[in-house]
């Protein structure tokens, strides 16, 4: 039986979900090591929501649709990879995607998601999240909101470990990101085809993330 969609959305958005989300700073640690001023962090959230988060949320929505339709996910994975040129950024996403797949297979064995994800060699995080969203009964809009919320929340949680901040301040950032998150939902919730996934890039974010493994002292893997 499917959980209530709101319960399912809360479950999947929970930072305590055992998929290794605590290793991710949503690009914040690479950005700070690359020279981003801490006062610009809220603007960084804006940039992410307009670019890489659109790509990931669109990927997840299409993966969800494909899973529901019983179609393979290979071309969704390819579309995501073509929009993610850095092998470092892809590897960080895949590390979490594998954890997400393990969890999907454990929670919803025998589901369309479990069988759609099984043949992928290295599922990207949004591909696995989107497929899992299908198993959990989320619609396209909830799937997009989940991906966007998770990105902002990961960044906010990481900010507390990286900068001296009042936790209420980062919670305020998250709340204020609400309209930006909803803009992502509106832009991608209806997508069904890999070619339609947005491809907006943030070249500087990409450079920072690509250089991240070369920094000697890191708290996060990405």
């Amino acid at each position: 039986m499917l959980p209530h969609p709101e319960f399912a959305a809360m479950l999947l958005a929970d930072g305590r979900l055992p998929v290794g989300g605590h290793t991710q700073s949503a690009g914040l640690e690479p950005a700070l090591l690359g020279g981003l001023e801490p006062r610009d962090i809220p603007d960084l959230i804006t940039t992410r929501l307009r670019t890489v988060v659109l790509v990931d949320a669109g990927t997840a929505v299409v993966a969800r649709h494909r899973t529901m339709a019983g179609l393979p996910l290979d071309d969704v994975q390819l579309a995501w990879a073509a929009r993610t040129p850095s092998e470092v950024v892809r590897a960080a996403s895949i590390a979490v995607g594998r954890g997400q797949r393990r969890l999907a297979q454990r929670l919803w064995p025998g589901s369309a998601a479990a069988s759609a994800l099984a043949p992928l060699r290295a599922p990207a995080r949004p591909v696995a999240v989107g497929s899992m969203a299908a198993a959990a009964g989320l619609d396209g809009a909830r799937t997009a909101r989940l991906v966007a919320y998770d990105d902002v929340q990961s960044l906010c949680a990481a900010a507390l470990k990286l900068c001296p901040l009042d936790p209420a301040e980062t919670t305020e950032w998250l709340l204020h990101a609400g309209p930006g998150v909803e803009a992502v939902v509106v832009a991608v919730a209806h997508l069904t085809e890999p070619d339609g996934i947005p491809a907006l890039s943030a070249p500087l974010l990409e450079q920072w993330q690509h250089a991240h493994p070369t920094h000697p002292r890191r708290l996060f893997s990405a």
Binding site: G27, A31, L44, T46, T47, L204
Partner: peptide, 8 residues
């Protein structure tokens, strides 16, 4: 005038 992280 793009926000930080796009083109700097």
């Amino acid at each position: 005038g793009l926000a930080p992280g796009a083109l700097g």
